[in-house]
């Protein structure tokens, strides 16, 4: 047995994985009956359908030819996702100015075309804009400076 449509196959695996997590997490929710649906009724229904669709994709991928897997460029994605998490960790203790500086520098690094002067200028511009618009003009609840 050979996988002839890797893209479809892995999409199927992904959907089955999500379905498995959903069905596992929903195992404790009471089902109720059709006339009185409990909190577990709809999730079970959806989980089973999703798993079924995932299986269809996987089965089909060994029968019908399809596209190969594209190249995943993990590094830029990992840096950006990491930078987003870091922003979440930094925003409350360190404030907007410091968090944004870190975020912009990491985002620029993720582009793999890093230019120091340009990045610094961009960071300053975005910080001034964000503080001016979001904090002062719109009054959003954002700490500006580190809270010591």
């Amino acid at each position: 047995m050979r996988i002839r449509a890797p893209k479809d196959f892995w999409a199927g695996v992904m959907f089955c994985a999500f379905a498995a997590v959903a069905l596992f997490a929903a195992r404790g929710y009471s089902l109720g009956s059709a006339g009185r649906m409990g909190p577990g009724y709809f999730p079970l229904l959806l989980g089973v359908v999703l798993a079924g669709l995932g299986v269809i994709l996987m089965v089909r991928s060994v029968v019908i030819d399809g596209e190969p897997l594209p190249r995943f460029r993990v590094l830029p994605l990992a840096i950006i996702a990491g930078a987003v998490c870091l922003f979440g960790l930094a925003i409350e203790p360190l404030g907007l100015v410091v968090s944004l500086a870190i975020l912009v520098v990491l985002a620029a690094v993720a582009g793999l075309q890093f230019r120091l002067v340009e990045t610094v200028a961009l960071a300053v511009g975005l910080i001034v804009f964000s503080v001016g618009v979001f904090v002062y003009a719109l009054g959003l609840p954002l700490p500006v400076w580190p809270s010591l």
């Binding site: 950006i80 930078a83 987003v84 998490c85 922003f87 979440g88 960790l89 925003i91 409350e92 907007l96 944004l100 975020l103 912009v104 985002a107 620029a108 582009g111 075309q113 230019r115 340009e118 961009l122 975005l126 964000s130 979001f134 959003l140 609840p141 954002l142």
Partner: peptide
């Protein structure tokens, strides 16, 4: 390369301010 960091910045600020909840990031 000048545009996308701005997108990321606005997304992060938006995700935080919607509920003032770092978890949303």
């Amino acid at each position: 390369r000048l545009l996308y960091p701005a997108i990321i910045v606005f997304c992060c600020i938006g995700a935080y301010t919607i509920n003032t909840k770092p978890f949303d990031l």
